[in-house]
């Protein structure tokens, strides 16, 4: 798959990143390098192997439904670059963005 400027700008938009024009070209090359690396990986013979056979025969461990309060919430809030009262404060989002809009 050939990566071009359009792909880079599209991914940047999804990631809400602004890329200065002079950075676009180097990004295209980085993207191409990454894709090239995966082409190398693709040469491995994976016939008959579950693509995500990461866990062997173990099933996911389950946790009992017992609520617990985390006692360092205030510390977490204080670590945030911006906050207002108990809210985290973030720059407004350009565009609606929330594609699944569960909120």
């Amino acid at each position: 798959m050939a990566i071009d400027e359009k792909d880079v700008l599209h991914v940047a938009r999804l990631a809400r990143l602004e890329i200065p024009p002079e950075r676009v070209d180097p990004m295209v090359r980085y993207f191409q390098d990454i894709i090239e690396h995966f082409r190398t990986l693709e040469k491995c013979d994976t016939e008959g192997i579950d693509p995500f056979e990461e866990s062997g025969s173990h099933s996911c461990p389950l946790r009992d439904d017992e609520p617990e309060i985390w006692s360092y919430v205030i510390d977490a809030l204080e670590e945030a670059p911006l906050r207002e009262g108990r809210f985290f404060k973030v720059p407004a989002i350009d565009g609606e963005g929330d594609p699944d809009d569960l909120s």
């Binding site: 911006l82 207002e84 809210f87 985290f88 404060k89 973030v90 720059p91 407004a92 989002i93």
Partner: peptide
């Protein structure tokens, strides 16, 4: 028009 958003997780 909003310059920032507040988030509650």
């Amino acid at each position: 028009g909003a310059s920032f958003s507040l988030v509650d997780y």
